[in-house]
């Protein structure tokens, strides 16, 4: 998966520019005009997050579709905030699990794939409004948390990604059976553009919660933020 050095340099430059893009959008509109309006809306958004957390039913499954309903593999849309091909050495990849866990450390892909597998055709809903139904394969996040002896009474889980993306979840949503550590799509190992080797898939949340290329997972009681959430997208992002 090695990208040549000049390409990487270009990417890191592109990344810096792209990270500023939302600021440019903010500057170009009235949204940033009233600081008081902005903070009112952010507060109200937290109220909506709270409502969503109350409405969320941990036992309610997202609809799972038949293979006929699948989005064709070549129509499986690639979407990221930045690069589609970050520098990731899949051979040496491990998942660091830390925070409120009894067995913190690095977990290998083999350890993850030997956990009970779940294959599901669920709808991936982007915050932009489009959606698609890929065939996902992986293991429930709960399985990994149990393997690592995580304190599942802790409130939050945060993930960090190979493209410097990060996001976080409430523990209740993480323990949902369809919240998976995904390593397969369409019965094949995940390709780099879709988050290889391991990504999150949560059909109960908006697409920006299904983080790709994850390398670190933290169990914590202090509410973490996220790349998009810190800029104004809702943190709970429930569906």
């Amino acid at each position: 998966m090695g990208l040549s050095t000049p390409n990487s340099r270009f990417l890191s430059k592109r990344r810096k520019i792209l990270q500023l893009a939302p600021l440019a959008l903010l500057a170009g509109c009235d949204y940033s005009a009233g600081g008081r309006t902005t903070s009112f809306l952010r507060t109200f958004q937290q109220f909506n997050d709270w409502v969503q957390s109350k409405v969320f039913d941990p036992n309610k499954l997202a609809p799972e579709y038949s293979d006929n309903d699948l989005t064709p593999e070549d129509g499986f849309r690639i979407n990221g905030y930045d690069t589609d091909r970050p520098d990731i050495d899949i051979e040496k990849w491990t998942l660091t699990v830390q925070g409120h866990v009894q067995k913190p450390g690095e977990y290998t892909l083999q350890q993850i794939t030997s956990l009970p597998k779940r294959v599901m055709n669920t709808r991936h809903c982007c915050v932009e409004g489009w959606s698609m139904i890929p065939k996902w394969g992986g293991t429930s996040l709960r399985n990994l948390l149990e393997l690592a002896g995580a304190d599942i009474t802790a409130k939050y889980v945060a993930v960090e990604c190979g493209d410097d993306y990060n996001t976080s979840f409430d523990m209740t949503s993480v323990l949902h059976p369809q919240s998976i550590l995904c390593y397969e799509a369409y019965n094949k190992p995940l390709v780099l553009e879709h988050g290889a080797p391991v990504r999150i898939v949560m059909p109960t949340k908006l697409g920006y919660k299904s983080a790709k290329w994850i390398h670190t997972l933290t169990v914590t009681n202090e509410k973490p933020g996220g790349y998009w959430e810190d800029q104004g997208y809702d943190w709970f992002a429930g569906l």
Partner: peptide, 13 residues
């Protein structure tokens, strides 16, 4: 609402 997140905040308020 400006950008998407702003419009969503207004919409859900």
């Amino acid at each position: 609402g400006g950008w998407l997140a702003g419009a969503r905040q207004w919409h859900f308020f």
